[in-house]
Design a protein around this nucleic acid. Sequence first.
RNA 1: GGCUCCAUCGUCUAGAGGCCUAGGACUCCAGAUUCUCAAUCUGGUAACAUGGGUUCGAAUCCCAUUGGAGCUACCA
Length: 416
Amino acid sequence: MQKVKVRYGPSPTGIPHIGNIRTALFNFLFAKSQNGEFFLRIEDTDQARIVPGAVEKIKDSLKSLNLEWDADIVYQSERLDIYQKYLNDLKSKDLAYNDEGAWRFKIQTDKKSVGWQDVVHGKVEFPTNVIEDFIIIKSDGFPTYHFASVVDDHELEISHVMRGDEWISSTPKHILLYEALGWEHPQFVHLPPILGADHKKLSKREGAKSVLEYIDEGYLPEAITNFLALLGWSPKGNQEIFSLDDLIKEFSLDRINKNSPIFNIEKLNWTNGQWIRKLTNDDLSNRLSIYNPKYDQKILKDVTPLIKDRINNLKDIKIADLFFKAPDPKDFKLTISEDILLKLIKNFESVKTWSTDNIKESANSLLGPNLEKKDLYQNLGLSLSGSTVTPPLFDSMENLGKDETIKRLKAAIKSQ
RNA sequence: GGCUCCAUCGUCUAGAGGCCUAGGACUCCAGAUUCUCAAUCUGGUAACAUGGGUUCGAAUCCCAUUGGAGCUACCA
């Protein structure tokens, strides 16, 4: 059995969006699951569309998800002599001709159709007469995708070409090229594209973001790969949460879907929450610090366990704001009487050992027919944080300390 | 228009002829639990596009229709 070698071949025309990176992910997972190799090939044959810095963004995107490539990056723009060599080969076989400075490949076959056994789609076949002579070397001397990818895939001994579905209709051209050059073609694995909510191909225009942007928005790389892997591929069982290593273990080509999935952010959000909960407190605290450098690291470390269950995203750190600053009483309005508040303060003042249990007991002693737990707690939360969404109250108060807690309650009296 | 691909809950999907009165997950709803809010647990709503075949039997196979998508560049 031939060694598995795959490649991810982005063109450096911008930051790859999430759908694009998912193709890289699938390539990576397949390679790693088969002890194969995963190459990065920059398809920079369209000089006009090259965006400076795009290659760095491509590398950053891959690295951000831990998708390390093997071997050196291949730049097609540095391989012009190789394409020239094979053009000459084609010319000598009378299979290429000049057309206004460009070179076209001559479609010359007796076959009625050109087909292949696609790994995800099964047998695919095109009538030969719809395939026209196509350009392989442009008049600027650079190859087109069709020619460059065929030559390079052969040269790099690529075993499986995993790429987007949009290449299906070009594949017959590629197969004809392989035949003309006397090569065997690799396996083709055409991945259905991720679609946007509008059921159209995900594109920059319609707001398709890059992984880098998702990370900027507080998503964990683990959650992104987890989510992306489940878009168009499914595991054997009912497991939903997978690390990259888990994915490598489970991945197989025969569980790739034929139909195009739609990107839905809600599941990403949930997956992100699951991953946040899966991290150790230290790990989460570090990531929160890096993501929110303005927050005091030491305090953050202390309160991370208190907010861990309450956030689905690194930017949800706002819930911990109460540990860093007191709320402005002007920003909220309490629904309990000043009388109750005063009693509460008095109770708290008499708490000897300021512990979660003692605080809770002290607060609960006020409960009765005129005061429901929910009302008391919500107002307590409001007084401490200015928000109805808070970390666990009594733990928070313990962390805040007796003086600060009482200070905030006193300040809250004004807000009634 | 031509060629090609695709078609199970709103979304991600399981399903390779009988195990399917269609399973899991997200979302939504309800309940439990709890220290408000969450998290967690339990339960619920919700789908085989349509029409023909094949078969004792079809979500699964075939055909057609419909719908969606892609390609049809000296872009990838």
